[in-house]
Amino acid sequence: MRWFILIVMLLGVMVLAGVGHRGQKFTSRPIEIFPDMDRQFKLKTQKPSEFFADGSGSRKPVAGTVPIGFAVAGDGGPAEFTFSHGPEYASTGMIGEYFGDGFPTEYPVDEALIERGRERFKINCSMCHGLSGNGVGIVSKYWTLPPTANLLDSRVQAFPDGQIFWTITHGKGLMGPYNGTIAVRDRWAIVSYVRALQKTAQP
């Protein structure tokens, strides 16, 4: 009996040392005790896939096809506009070769749109352009040249609405394109909010 207790205690100490406690940090993949169907061989969002030769589960559209929701541009080829609905003004900010002014009929300006724009501006734009749009966001502390555009100055005020939309979509200078993360409606919402900021700014 004495031996039994001794052995159990020794083993216990060893096991406890190995097991540790709940919540301690570890880097290896968590073990799954009953792995039945936990990991299925199916296509999962943003996950690799062994099924495709390039190993990527996210697929690009097959050449010559257009995904649902993407319109075909005038020349018959696939539309170059990503995350949009087509070649019309609401999706491009352009009429022919020129920037259009005014808001597209699909996205009329109302309080809800401006409010949405305020929220999206805070999320996506304020880091660089500042909460008030003055071009002094938190990022200005980390890069020095060239300064971020001040959205309140007269140069930007004179931009047609379509140009601001186009700039959000494609970027400009050091600013990258935001067509992958901000939906078309939200881009127009941001344009409306930028206009509101400009109206309320002290000259």
């Binding site: 159990v8 216990g12 096991v15 097991v19 709940r22 919540g23 301690q24 940090k25 570890f26 880097t27 290896s28 993949r29 968590p30 073990i31 799954e32 005790i33």
Partner: peptide, 21 residues
């Protein structure tokens, strides 16, 4: 002892919490 050990470790509180790859 074994059932206590299983109850303590065979749960996501032990197997998943703390995973820091």
């Amino acid at each position: 002892i074994v059932s206590g050990l299983v109850a303590y470790t065979a749960t996501p509180k032990y197997t998943r919490v703390g995973y820091m790859p």
